[in-house]
């Protein structure tokens, strides 16, 4: 029982990380049909931005999360300008290459700047435990990660649903030309979307960076898994990415605990294949558009 609950909680922590990165991916895919391979690097940059803020500038960890989201959000804008804008109108596969190339460059620049060895992102709540009924011991950091992640996702879905710009994003996802006829500045929607996607990834990096350690290549496997999450949840579906992320995290965690830890990374992908066999459009997916 203890093992199960603990592994379930750890799975949710990892799953939330996947979900946050996957939401950025699915948002950009849902609106522009572009697969943004820089999402893993933005996650890594989020962790390093928080690290610089805490260790370099002696800043507060919680402020560092917000700093990382804003700073990396701006990097997301720069990435859009560099790897997407010049190629608009081309085949959508081109963007996989251009964003992947930019991701490799980014990871290597960080490696030059900070070195390849893992660094510790210090959080004041990383070593404080919460004891639930003597069954579950969790660090406050992990609880905070889940709560913060859920809050971000709720905020994002409400933003999409209720605000003018959110409506504009959904309109562009459905039909760019008609959206432009409504007076929506489609280029501005690109900027908003890439900013939001980058900020979500950065939040994940800054949160999970204080659970484990941070290193320049921490986003490499994550982007692949987040992509699996997006496919599993349904391409373009924000709730789908959330659900898919949690399922992937929990199945990896439980599979690693009860079956074999060597194949931990494979369980998630097996679950993805099973989901796709039953629902080829993904858990909450339809054919097109953003939800």
């Amino acid at each position: 029982m203890e093992l199960f609950v603990t592994q379930l909680a750890n799975g949710l922590v990892i799953g939330m990380t996947y979900a946050l990165v996957a939401i950025g991916l699915t948002l950009i895919y849902g609106i522009f049909h572009i697969i943004n391979m820089t999402q893993g690097s933005l996650y890594m940059l989020g962790a390093y931005a928080a690290y610089v803020f805490v260790s370099g500038a002696q800043g507060n960890y919680f402020v560092a999360i917000v700093f990382a989201m804003v700073a990396v959000g701006l990097v997301g804008l720069l990435f859009e300008r560099l790897s997407v804008r010049p190629l608009l109108g081309r085949n959508h596969l081109v963007f996989i290459l251009s964003t992947f190339g930019l991701a490799v460059i980014t990871d290597n620049l960080v490696m030059i700047g900070f070195g390849p060895e893992p660094l510790r992102l210090a959080s004041p709540i990383a070593r404080k435990f919460i004891n639930v009924q003597d069954v579950l011991f969790l660090t406050q950091q992990k609880v905070f990660l889940i709560v913060f992640g859920v809050a971000m996702i709720v905020l994002l879905t409400q933003f999409l649903k209720r605000t003018n710009v959110g409506r504009g994003m959904r309109a562009v996802a459905t039909d760019q030309n008609t959206a432009a006829l409504m007076g929506i500045n489609v280029k501005q929607i690109y900027r908003v979307t890439f900013f939001l996607g980058a900020a979500m990834s950065a939040a994940a990096g800054a949160l999970v960076g204080a659970v484990f350690s941070i290193e320049p290549e921490m986003g490499n496997l994550l982007i692949i898994k987040s992509f699996a999450v997006v496919i599993m949840g349904g391409m373009g579906s924000v709730p789908g990415a959330f659900l898919g992320g949690l399922i992937l995290g929990v199945s990896e965690s439980l599979g690693g605990a009860y079956l074999t830890v060597e194949y931990k990374d494979a369980f998630g992908l097996i679950v993805m294949i099973l989901v796709l066999l039953l629902r080829p459009q993904g858990l909450l997916g339809r054919r097109m558009g953003l939800r």
């Binding site: 409506r167 959904r170 459905t174 039909d175 008609t178 006829l181 558009g289």
Partner: peptide, 8 residues
């Protein structure tokens, strides 16, 4: 063809 946004 109106181009109404069908999901809204």
């Amino acid at each position: 063809g109106r181009n109404i946004f069908p999901d809204m």
